[in-house]
Design a binder for these strands. Sequence first.
DNA 1: GCCGTTTTCGGCCCGACTGTTTTCAGTCG
Length: 567
Amino acid sequence: MKNQLVAKILYEIADLLEIKEVEFKPRAYKRAAMAVEALGDDIEDYAKYKNLDDIPGVGESIAKKIKEIIDTGKCLEHERLKKEIPIDFEALLSVEGLGPKTVKLLYKKLLIRNLSDLEKAASAGKIAELEGFGEKSQQDILDGITLAKSKGERMLLDEATAFADDITGKLKELSHITQIEAVGSLRRMKETVGDIDIIAVTRNAKAVAEAARQLDNVQKVYSAGPTKIMLKLRDGPDVDIRIFGEKSYGAALLYFTGSKQHNISLREIAIRKKWKLNEYGIFSGKKQIAGKSEQEVYRKLGLDYMAPELREDRGEIEAARTGNLPRLVEQDEIKGDLHVHTTASDGVSSLQEMVDAAKQLGYAYIGISDHYGSLAIANSMDSKRLAIQHEAIDKINRQSTGIHIFKGAEVNINKNGTLDIEPEVLKKLDYAIISIHSSFRLSQAEQTKRVIRALNHDKARILGHLSARLLFKREPVELDYEAVFKAAKAGNVALEINSFPNRLDLNDSHAKAAKGHGCSFAIDTDSHNAEHLRLMRFGVGTARRGWIETSSVINTWPLKKVADFLG
DNA sequence: GCCGTTTTCGGCCCGACTGTTTTCAGTCG
């Protein structure tokens, strides 16, 4: 997977060109870099099977450079520029407040090439002496260096959600706020979130701005005007808060939800219609002609409403223009959860607790899928313990409590593609979720063969967390995903979209690719605790980012139909 | 360097905030 490398080099070329004050090209390189970052597909596979210049923002010239990076790991043009301007951009630009222009000026005047040069010059008071700088900007640079060094990682979705809920909750206590919502990548349900964006509607912007500054865990206020506050939380993310009037709320939601590229495309449509689109609305001359709601803005632009999860400039605008948007799966259409652990293996809630929690969510069914097998992972069950569990399940099912319990198990796929379960025990299950829990580092060919072989078992009905990645922790396995999707379709096995925030596996782009093969999906939580059942929203969000429609999600189906599917 | 429901040439998103300034350039999202 060289996507990150390609994106990084393209970004650096953009920065270098910007320093050289080349016009327009920096934007082109940045746009291409962003597109590669958002691609999802492995860029090497993409280069093999498709045309690189099909990627929006990539034309003939950049395609060539991408090819060069894939083949050689670098790009001559990039090397040449670096030699010409020997500056450590990544480090310097990571300092809040420093942009290409300032970096260039500091290099020209003080020969600053890296963070340590910068720190020395600022400490020695050299920067304040430069024209256009002062004591304040010099101190800001020193502060920025400290912050850059301690720069927080991106967060998992549930963590970001918790921060956002906390802040919106506190601000809402102010009576002046009529609406408040977390937007940005969090609202788009991107798998990781960098900072928290919040917009609020109020008639008393000043009071809200003041309240934001006074939040108890603020480490630093970057800037605070009457309608925009940017701050950093202690041991937490950066938070941007913007304040709007009611008649701009929709345009503001749209703008700050992004993605950036989606917005730019919308603005270009507005320009073509001789209008202007900004965060306050669509304007014809000085007159606002839309902006109160997102729906209104899209409608005015001649587009169907696009859910936030779709707004990545991955073809949704064209689909919205031509009435071809997918009918996305909704959270309240989920009728059950088919990947749930209990105290019988490594869960911490009992069978009864899980069933009760599922009932509270209004589910019609739940699939209990404790670990089974010889592998010493996760307190796996043996046949005896499974039999005991089945008795308990039968008993609850007989009580006809309004929810049906399926007898499942999560079964490890052995290295050779066989299943880690005795055939006679497998027969006793309603279904098996088959997943990889070991041998993560096989070659792509071996791993693919392993998974496809495992798909052939009758009781294998769901393929669990396929890539086996753990965000921030473990890379996905090497796999020919297209081949696996084909095999899953042929064997009528559902692909899991695991909702656990550090998994989200399939990820959005794999889900979209699988959809292209006509696969069906199971959005599951992999709960190990009754509380975890609520993580379903993150799986649904990921599915929606993958353009997944309700009809292909087996756990939106009624009991009878899903029972037939599981067999 | 990229792109096209005006265009294969001639455009390229838009506004808030800050510091160091007396009107704005740079940065950020």
